[in-house]
């Protein structure tokens, strides 16, 4: 036959933004591991023909592992159900949506990435603003802080109305403010409020995406894209045919580096306004 009309074996679709050198072989994927690599050009996904075709394929997939921020945004917008696990880009999704769809994901940074910075900077207590649905990361966050001799104060918000009170409360008690993700806190009015609070109180704002440093955050994590793709591939092989991670958000383990807002750092270190 020219093609097999029915599905053959369980397959996981690994969705990664295309870049030079990305290949099935390079990610250690072969034909028999039940993982299909789908590399895409981010600019192409605004094309309704390309987007529709990919969406149709992924809707029928046994499971999708989505690597990266742009991938996560597209998946959140286009896919309605099925099993999805995010590697690195889960901070783009609302916790409520993750919970409602039963999806899971890893943040692009390990808990220690920002806590090590806090320790170096002498911030003894770090305030953490969590959106509802991100509570799964709290236990690991507290454990990582304790291991470093730091303490964390956590406030959970469910809507934009909750942000000012929760943020003000943390600002009065902590040396830095850390946001893990969710568009409620990383986009629009919510993020603008946190940046304003950070600048007015000289309270370092730690953000999940490197682009947010340009938007006024003090520091953010910049994941290594190759490592993230490799992590996605390894995870996909393990998930193929097996149970999927429980719904919720957890810390990731992808290598990367901290991107610090050096302008803010110099200004605050020098005592300037």
């Amino acid at each position: 036959m020219l093609w097999t009309p029915a599905w053959t074996a369980a397959e996981v679709d690994l969705l990664v933004e295309a870049r030079p050198g990305l290949s099935t072989a390079g990610l250690g994927l072969g034909g028999a591991d039940g993982v299909r690599l789908r590399a895409f050009d981010a600019g192409e996904l605004s094309d309704p023909i390309v987007s529709g075709r990919l969406s149709a394929r992924l809707q029928a997939s046994d499971g999708v592992v989505a690597v990266g921020y742009e991938t996560a945004s597209w998946v959140a917008r286009e896919l309605e159900g099925g099993r999805v696990h995010f590697v690195g880009g889960v901070s783009r999704l609302s916790g409520a949506a993750l919970k409602a769809r039963g999806w899971s994901g890893e943040l692009s940074f390990p808990a220690g990435a920002f806590l090590d910075l806090a320790r170096r900077e002498g911030w003894r207590r770090v305030g953490v603003l969590l959106a509802a649905g991100y509570e799964g990361a709290e236990a690991a966050l507290r454990a990582a802080a304790a291991a470093r001799g730091l303490s964390v104060e956590v406030r959970t918000v469910s809507s934009r109305r909750d942000i000012p009170k929760a943020a003000q409360d943390l600002a009065g008690r902590c040396s830095a403010l850390w946001v893990l993700g969710d568009p409620l806190l990383t986009r629009g009015a919510g993020f603008d409020y946190l940046v304003e609070l950070s600048l007015s109180r000289r309270l370092p704002l730690l953000a999940p995406e490197p682009g947010m440093v340009d938007g006024g955050a003090f520091a953010a994590w910049e994941p290594d894209q190759e490592e993230a793709a490799a992590r996605g591939a390894a995870l996909s092989k393990g998930l193929s045919g097996e149970g999927w991670p429980a719904s919720g958000v957890r810390f990731g383990s992808v290598a990367g580096r901290l991107r610090v807002n050096e302008v803010l750092r110099r200004r605050w270190a020098g005592g300037g306004g």
């Binding site: 093609w3 097999t4 009309p5 309704p48 023909i49 075709r53 149709a56 029928a60």
Partner: peptide, 16 residues
């Protein structure tokens, strides 16, 4: 209106 649906392992039906 574009419609796309997979109809096989590596086969899609596409319509505009």
């Amino acid at each position: 209106l574009f419609a796309a649906t997979p109809v096989g392992e590596d086969a899609d039906f596409l319509m505009d």
